[in-house]
Computed example of a mutant assay.
Amino acid sequence: MFPPLPCFGGSGCDPATSRRQHQERKMRMLTYWRDGVERQLAAVNAAISTLEKQIARDGTPDQG
Rank of each mutant, 00 (worst) to 15 (best):
Q63V: 07
A47W: 00
T60R: 13
G10I: 14
V44W: 05
S18H: 03
I48P: 01
I55E: 05
A56E: 05
D14A: 00
T31Q: 15
L41T: 00
I55D: 03
F2G: 01
R34E: 13
G12F: 09
V37Y: 12
T31K: 13
I48V: 15
C7R: 06
C7F: 07
Q54L: 15
Q21K: 15
L51R: 15
C7Y: 10
A16S: 06
L5G: 05
L30Q: 09
A56L: 12
M27H: 14
S11Q: 08
A42P: 00
Q21L: 15
C7M: 10
M1H: 04
R28N: 06
G64I: 13
A16Q: 09
S18L: 13
E52I: 09
L41Q: 13
N45S: 08
S11H: 07
A43C: 00
T60P: 02
E38H: 05
G59N: 03
H22G: 11
P15L: 10
E52H: 10
S18R: 07
G36K: 09
A43H: 03
M27E: 10
A47H: 08
D58R: 13
G12D: 15
Q21T: 11
C7T: 02
H22D: 11
D35M: 14
D14E: 11
F8G: 01
Q21M: 14
M27A: 14
L41V: 05
L51T: 13
Y32M: 12
